[in-house]
Design a protein around this nucleic acid. Structure first.
Lengths: 199, 199
DNA sequence: CATTAACCGGACCGTGCGGTCAACTTGCTA
DNA sequence: TAGCAAGTTGACCGCACGGTCCGGTTAATG
């Protein structure tokens, strides 16, 4: 945590293997994926998992932080680009692709209230907020939609597509497009309920 | 199942108590809600649960069937009404309210491939399909949206709102309205990916 | 009111989980 | 290349879960 001595070569490799195996396993079996299965998939012993991540929740948190940091960087980069509408679309597309065509948002519940996760989430939220604000100013996003709305809707395409048994792996694109159409000003009717405050 | 001798009075009462308690418990704790907790909440012993439902999955299936049948009836009744757009909106509103402001769709996974559940699901799907077809004919629904799309999007408002910690219990209405805006023809851009075939 | 089949309850069982630990192996460094 | 801290491993632990079972209880029937 504080002392950042570099990991030994095999340890660093195993850590990456574990994160990848865990993401796959969670995508296939949900939160119930067992640590033993994750270890087997990564080709290591179960003890190794707990050497790297003190608890299962910490492993989940590590996956979440990785992904949210990557999305934050992308969001910040897209803010530099010119096209407000394309930026938002690309951001949401990247968010959906990152989840291996499977909604992984359920992981968030397991590691809520871990400070590092919260920090990563706040950074990502800020990036989204800026993209949405700019989109609203340029007329690409309807007036009554906020960053919090988009933040919440981010996982919906994967969630929806996840209920189709043998779906095309790109089915989520259909529902992302549908939601994006709902976010645009054309044909918008005033939304009920106030937009939620996040934090 | 085949012999439908009426339940004894106490048994019938306990069955209802159990279904209600189970729905509440699942809403609060997800699929991991324990049978013991459900029994406690209903004020009965654990053995009673298994007398009524041979397995936890069967209990889940009973909840699902109850709700899907109710929605099917509503959908069929709304088809008789005149206003195609209002019918669809009311149907989706009722679907969301039934879930006690919480996405319960994860229950579907647990009891997929149970014939009775499938029959109830097919009936509900047919009801939705007719509502959507009519809506499309009358210009209330965009051309490229199918009943399967609406069926899949049905749970999304509760899902989305469920991630807000201390949300207004009606927050789902906001996201339902947003999705409904996306379903209308105004401002629609062609959707990518084919609509999925369900069964 | 007596009889009885249906119902109830909670102690009990096997299983699989997250997490621990002590013996063993291995990458680093001097 | 020797020494050792860091890393690895799988047997093991406690626990909570889904599900069973049987002695006690209760609602229906004549």
């Amino acid at each position: 945590m504080t002392d950042t001595r570099p990991l030994r070569a095999d340890a660093a490799r195993n850590r990456k293997l574990l994160l990848a195996a865990a993401a796959d396993e969670f995508a296939e079996h949900g939160l119930d994926a067992s640590v033993a299965d994750i270890a087997r998939r990564a080709g290591v012993g179960k003890g190794t998992v707990f050497r790297h991540f003190a608890t299962k929740d910490e492993l989940i948190a590590a996956i979440l932080i990785d992904r949210m940091e990557a999305l934050s960087e992308l969001g910040e980069r897209l803010y530099e680009s010119g096209d407000a509408e394309a930026a938002l679309r690309e951001f949401l597309t990247a968010a959906a692709m990152q989840r291996q065509e499977r909604d992984l948002s359920f992981l968030a519940a397991a590691s809520a209230s871990m400070p590092e996760v919260n920090r990563a989430r706040e950074r990502m939220f800020a990036a989204i907020d800026r993209l949405v604000d700019r989109g609203r100013e340029r007329g690409a996003v309807r007036d009554d939609v906020t960053g919090a709305d988009v933040f919440l809707l981010m996982c919906a395409p994967n969630y929806v597509a996840g209920y189709v048994p043998n779906a095309s792996p790109d089915l989520w694109r259909r529902y992302l497009a549908l939601i994006l159409d709902g976010l645009r000003p054309e044909g918008a009717r005033p939304l009920p309920e106030q937009a939620p405050e996040l934090d």
